[in-house]
Simulated scan of single mutants.
Amino acid sequence: MGRFGRTIVTAALAVAVVAGTAGWAAGDSQRPVTGPPPGAAAWRADTVSGRPLPDPADADPHEVARFFAGLDGAVRRELVRAHPLVVGNLDGAPLPLRYEANRLAALATGEARYASLAAPGRRILAFDPRGRGQVAEVFGDLGGAAHVAVVVPGSDNDALSHDAPRRPDTGPAGMARALWTATGGAAGDTAVVAWTGYTTPVGVGLDAAGGRLAQAGAVRLARFTAGLDAVGAPDPVLLCHSYGSVVCGLAARHTDARDIVALGSPGMRADTAAALGTGARVWAARGPSDWIADVPNVEVAGIGHGTDPTSPAFGARRVPASDVVGHTGYFAPGTRSLAAFAAIAKGDVR
Rank of each mutant, 00 (worst) to 15 (best):
L338P: 01
F314G: 04
G264I: 08
V282N: 07
A270W: 02
A332S: 03
G211M: 10
P312W: 15
A301Y: 12
V298I: 14
A342H: 03
V261Q: 07
S322I: 06
A343Q: 03
L263A: 12
L263K: 04
G287F: 08
V282R: 09
L238Q: 01
A230F: 00
D256P: 09
T272L: 04
F224E: 11
V231T: 14
T307Q: 12
T278P: 02
G244H: 00
V325Q: 02
D259A: 15
S311K: 02
L263N: 06
Y243T: 09
V261A: 06
S289E: 08
V295L: 15
A218V: 00
P333H: 07
A252S: 02
R286P: 01
A339G: 15
T310D: 07
V300W: 11
A339W: 02
G267L: 11
T272H: 04
A222I: 00
V237G: 11
F314D: 07
G244Y: 02
S265T: 06
G277E: 03
Y243C: 08
G211H: 03
I303C: 09
R336H: 09
L338G: 06
A339L: 06
R317E: 14
A316F: 13
R253H: 13
E299M: 04
A340M: 05
D308C: 05
V231A: 11
G334T: 03
F314E: 11
T335D: 02
R223E: 10
A332F: 04
G334E: 08
V298Q: 10
P266Y: 06
A275R: 03
L338I: 00
W291A: 11
S289Y: 10
A339C: 05
L250G: 05
E299D: 14
G315D: 13
T328D: 15
G304T: 10
G329Q: 10
R220I: 09
I303W: 13
V300T: 13
P288W: 04
